[in-house]
């Protein structure tokens, strides 16, 4: 029954992704509250754990407003374009090795292992910019348009650094298959993880993490939203479930990017000092590593102020890209030496 197993796997992975996104919205509020010495939401359910559910219900019940003069079709299309690519990319992320649940052999725990898994993720995360730019344009509002334009310029700029840095890992591992990238690092020795490759690994990790921040439009690079200047940026005019889709897309993209960082630099599901760990341990390890990056997303958001737009562009083109290229060269040198 391979089809049935695939179906179960898909529902597990997508359920997991959506739950993670929901938990992230709660974590965002709870952690920001902690940092600001507040308590955060604590009314819905014990300790406020059901807050995402309440938010979801609220989103559904809100009135759907389409501004006059908006381009109706594209206005409707934009939230879908924002959410779908982020959700698609999770299909190639390897979560654990050989998996058996209740005697059912699930094979390797990922929806599919593409030869070009990394390219797939990068290609579709590149498409998510359309949601932002189209949403901004179709709203027929100057704030939205500016937000959309800024976001798209930013995402295109930082995608370059992102891809260059990912390429470093491809060079180190000799594969674009995400599972193979993990398997190369999964030797039982944590020093084999790509982030411990001298110089190349550390520089790559830092660059990659920062580039993912820009790619997912998070602080300190959230020029798409930029509340003080642009009201809500590209989603100023959106309400109800359309807004919820943008929101969901952002958090899904964050989750996928955190997974990707883990896979590329922290050895994915490889457990330190235990090469053939059972799948549960591997999955737990993977989740622990990913949670760290998810926490980092929130942590940085509530620490740093927003960049200025020209600073952002300078940083992207004059600092990040050269460093990423140099790092790639260094990786080549490293490979030829070892």
């Amino acid at each position: 029954m391979p089809f049935l197993i695939l179906l179960i796997k898909a529902s597990l992975i997508y359920g997991g992704l959506l739950v993670t996104a929901a938990v992230m919205t709660l974590a965002e509020r709870k952690i920001s509250a902690r940092i600001q010495l507040r308590i955060g939401p604590n009314r819905v359910g014990p300790g406020g754990v059901l807050q995402p559910l309440a938010d979801g219900v609220k989103f559904i019940l809100k009135e759907e407003i389409t501004p006059d003069g908006a381009n109706k079709g594209i206005f409707r299309l934009a939230p879908i374009m924002a959410a779908v690519p982020a959700m698609l990319t999770v299909a190639v992320i390897p979560f654990a090795g050989e998996t058996v649940i209740f005697g059912l052999d699930f094979g390797l725990l990922s929806l599919t292992d593409l030869d070009i898994g990394l390219l797939f993720v990068l290609a579709f995360s590149g498409l998510s910019v359309y949601g932002v730019i189209l949403g901004g344009w179709a709203s027929n509002s100057k704030y939205s348009l500016l937000g959309g334009l800024r976001a798209s310029a930013q995402m295109v700029s930082y995608e370059l650094s992102l891809i260059m840095t990912a390429l470093t890992v491809v060079a180190l591992s000799g594969s674009m298959d995400l599972r193979e990238i993990v398997e190369v690092q999964n030797t039982g020795n944590p020093l084999a993880w790509n982030c411990f490759t001298p110089v190349v690994g550390q520089v790559g990790l830092v660059l990659f993490v920062i580039a993912t921040f820009a790619e997912t439009n998070r602080h300190p690079f959230d020029f798409a939203e930029c509340e003080p200047e642009l009201v809500g940026g590209f989603h100023t005019e959106y309400s109800s479930m359309k807004f919820a889709l943008f929101f969901l897309g952002e958090y899904c993209a964050m989750t996928v990017m955190a997974c990707l960082t883990t896979v590329l630099f922290l050895g994915g599901y490889s457990v330190p000092f235990w090469e053939d760990a059972p799948w549960m341990v591997e999955l737990a390890t993977f989740m622990a590593k990913t949670s760290f990056f998810l926490f980092l997303f929130i942590w940085v958001r509530w620490t740093l102020p927003r960049f200025r737009y020209d600073q952002l562009m300078n940083l992207g083109w004059k600092v990040f890209l050269p460093i990423a290229l140099a790092n790639l060269l260094l990786a080549g040198a490293f490979i030829s030496l070892t």
Binding site: L119, L122, A123, F124, G126, L127, V129, Y130, I133, L134, W137, L149, S152, A153, M155, V156, E159, I163
Partner: peptide, 14 residues
Amino acid sequence: ILVYGGAIMVLFLF
């Protein structure tokens, strides 16, 4: 998708 969809068409749209 990556080059045409993700980069070039965005510039067109721009």
